[in-house]
Design a binder for these strands. Structure first.
Lengths: 208, 208, 208, 208
DNA sequence: CATGAATGAGAATTCATTCAT
DNA sequence: CATGAATGAATTCTCATTCAT
């Protein structure tokens, strides 16, 4: 494909990955603004100028990072869902597990970075668009799974959206608290409790 | 007592409030870093230098803001709890309502600012300390209320901590999603759904 | 003299002294630039605004301080000279003693402040004028005393100026080293050694 | 060895020298505080931001300047001592000459800057450490040379320290007066008079 | 592709001075 | 006289971005 006669084979793809990964690391410690090009470059073991060869702007690196986090989450989710079998309830629990796998490939750096991304979404429209899309996607997926559960039990799906919102809120909230108020959540809290929460939300109507 | 030397009366208290309020406004739009002293001053209608007369550093304004948000939350919570009567279940629902009163005195500015504070907690130890304390306080309070509910029903309080964690996570997560992915959560989602979530979490044990 | 009918008796004189003294203290710790009006005011126990009631500018306080240091030095010198009796050699030694009385009213603060004044003289013409006048006065006085010694011994006064310059240089240099490189000069160095230096300088011609 | 990635060759060493030299020039006119980054940059013909690329802080430039002045003084001293031959008295006179060579490579800028450094030593611990080390080094060297002279004459070296202190004080004091009260010292004062002073200090004991 | 110097537009912060009370 | 808030210019330092090599 490349018209390059001989020359050096392009290493742009890997370089971009390295740079995005360096931003992830630095950002999880310093936030986005304080993640300077110089710091990111040092973290990646590259010269500062090189970052602007591979990315036009610093924001572009952030965008790439957000896309990568989302893509990995989607990939992980797909894997778990396909492994969970056909039962709707199991599928929903797989959804939860895929998100709260804090010790899996979603390392602490990513959790902290994700929280920082959330704050950047407050002010950067481009980031907000991606973030919103990611949340909306999660919500839609959760809603479908919740609806399937309800249908299976012959119940109305009227509340599926709200229940999905509760689930996604709790997941995102757990990330936030984990990163911003470390040590406050009980150990091993996430998976079992969220699972129970899901179960509870699916119980028969409660007078509210 | 020192009747000599009256001089100019101090207005520091009000000025500080004005400045903190200006930070709240600006920060909810621009994040913390982009909330420059110049912008905050303009928002407050003050000269930039004056901000550093009333606060040593910009971070000090942020600290004051966090303290104010927390204090107001505590005050609102106390009011609702005392109005809720003695039934444990009602108390717990009052706890939820006090937090998700997004349209009440917890305006959208505050919600967005709180999310930004969470991200700053990732990197600023002083902010993290306050944020962590606030979350820990909420968790402790929720745990006590959950435990009371469980005891009333003659059940074990073993899971009170985890249930409280789910409740607080969902509340904080709702704030986050509300501010960072606006429009994704169903309208009027918060109160009724979280109430249902609470009810669900308190249901009899589910195999997890 | 005052046309003031009753009112408060003016305390300007004392206030000015207090302010000048506060500058002395602060400056000996922080240098001139870092001796802010706020710091000086705090040191004096006064409100910042009051300093500009008693002095037009900050530099004016510095000028007053320099004048005070010089005046006190002159007063001390006069006292010692008149106490020294009529012998020229004794007079010259009294001159040295009056300057190096580091433990007397020339406290460490004053020594450090004097060094700072010297550096300010490099850039502030007004200060330089005063500083130069003070040094020139010392040199002239020293020269006269040296000349008297030489004449008494029936020797030429041709070198009186150079000898005086050596004496004054050594005195000022001792201040400088004392303040800027504390601990390097031998204890109790000043008086006896400078006395010996004077004696040496007055010895019969040495081939140089 | 890493033959790959040549890139732009570093010119940091020369740039740093230029910047240090610019500080020397500006500081000798304006003092340290008024030697702003902008002024230094203009003097060096560089963009202000570049100074902070090559030095972390303004103080770091000052430190580099002090080190350079001291290093040059040491080099000049070594050269003169080795040229002076083995006679102790000649060595001591070479010591004096090396310091007071005000017209040689120790230009007026350096003399004024050195006085300003002395004042900064009053308040900046890092500067004080370097300044003190420089003075202590001079004192130690002078003491050794004085002691050699005394021993040669079969006399006690008991007063070597004090005599050295007088010599160093007079030298530093001459710099101070030269820069801060220009025109007061007799022309051509330094070398011959200090030489005579040394001679005088080495004379046989005088009752003090 | 890669390096690292260079730029310049802000950023927070400081501070002498003014002035309303 | 005294107080302390207010101003605004100046200062150091930061940092994304550009570009010569």
């Amino acid at each position: 494909m490349s018209s390059r006669a001989v020359g050096r084979p392009s290493n742009t793809a890997e370089r971009r990955e390295e740079i995005v990964d360096a931003l992830l690391s630095v950002m999880s410690r310093t936030g986005y603004e304080q993640a300077t090009i110089a710091l990111i470059a040092r973290e990646a073991g590259l010269a500062p100028g090189l970052l602007h060869y591979h990315f036009q702007t610093k924001q572009e690196i952030l965008i790439a990072l957000v896309e990568r986090i989302v893509a990995r989450r989607d990939r992980r989710l797909a894997a778990r869902l396909s492994a969970a079998g056909g039962d709707p309830r199991d599928q929903l629990l797989a959804f939860v597990d895929a998100h709260v796998a804090l010790g899996d490939d979603a390392d602490p750096r990513t959790v902290a970075a994700w929280v920082v991304v959330g704050a950047e979404a407050v002010r950067q429209p481009e980031v907000r668009a991606l973030y919103t899309e990611a949340i909306a996607s999660s919500l839609a997926r959760a809603r479908a799974l919740v609806a399937a559960c309800l249908r299976q039990e012959g119940r109305s799906t009227r509340n599926a959206g709200r229940i999905a919102a509760a689930i996604v809120s709790a997941i995102e909230g757990a990330f936030l608290v984990h990163a911003s108020a470390p040590g406050t959540l009980p150990d091993g809290y996430a998976a079992p409790t969220l699972r129970r929460m899901v179960a509870g939300l699916l119980e028969r109507e409660v007078e509210t």
